[in-house]
């Protein structure tokens, strides 16, 4: 555990809780892509199956359980409790174009051709692109609520901090995982355009809106 890893995890947790609270307090999931949230629920489920096979630490187990629980709670709020506010018409990204190629890649490029390892690899690849339906939705409507941009910033920051964590681990622990690193770089790059808008607009008190 190093400082980048810990702040990355906390940033990830903050993102998840910001989104849950935003939906709960406003009683609305307007502007939130349900498809991205389903993809994140699949990501956590397929990655954390190791909860059943190996114990690493109390921290590790509790964070995994919290992430999975929050992911399903978010999906429940969007598709059940507040489904009347769900903006399905604008959430039109075709997720099969992500899930099918990512599944194929996980079968082809992995560390070990076993069921759990392929699911772990699938979750790493899927996480790297799971935010695309949300970004697509924002580009389609041309705007995002400020609280939604805080959510996205924390989510992007988490993977950027993990990149620093991997550099740290490479130097001080001689450990690196090429699958996680390549997917993590892809994931972080997808947020760059958003980071720019967040810093130049949202942090200066303006609403995030895209030119028509």
């Amino acid at each position: 555990m190093n400082v980048f890893r810990l702040t990355g995890d906390l940033s990830h947790l903050a993102a998840i809780i910001i989104l849950l609270l935003k939906i709960w307090k406003s009683r609305s999931c307007a502007g939130i892509s349900g498809k991205s949230q389903i993809l994140f629920a699949i990501v956590f489920t397929t990655r954390y199956l190791d909860l059943l096979t190996s114990f690493i630490s109390i921290y590790n187990t509790s964070m995994k359980v919290i992430y999975i629980g929050c992911a399903y709670a978010t999906v429940y709020l969007i598709y059940m409790k507040f489904r009347a506010t769900y903006d399905g018409n604008h959430d039109s990204f075709r997720v099969e174009f992500l899930v099918v190629p990512v599944g194929g890649l996980a079968v082809l490029v992995n560390h070990d051709f076993s069921f759990l390892e392929i699911l772990w690899t699938f979750s790493i690849y899927l996480e790297s692109v799971a935010i695309l339906p949300q970004l697509f939705m924002i580009s389609k409507t041309g705007e995002a609520e400020t609280i939604t941009t805080h959510y996205l910033f924390c989510l992007g920051l988490y993977r950027a901090l993990y990149l620093l964590n991997w550099i740290w681990r490479f130097y001080f622990e001689s450990f690196f995982d090429m699958i996680a690193i390549v997917a993590g770089v892809v994931q972080t790059v997808l947020y760059c355009d958003f980071f720019y808008l967040y810093i130049t607009k949202v942090l200066k008190g303006k609403k995030l809106s895209l030119p028509a």
Binding site: R5, D9, H12, D50, S54, I56, S57, N60, M63, K64, Y67, H111, D112, W120, Y162, N165, E173, F175, D177, A180
Partner: peptide, 10 residues
């Protein structure tokens, strides 16, 4: 093992 090191990360 490298496998456990990977599964330590979230």
């Amino acid at each position: 093992s490298p496998e456990l090191l990977r599964h330590d990360e979230l």
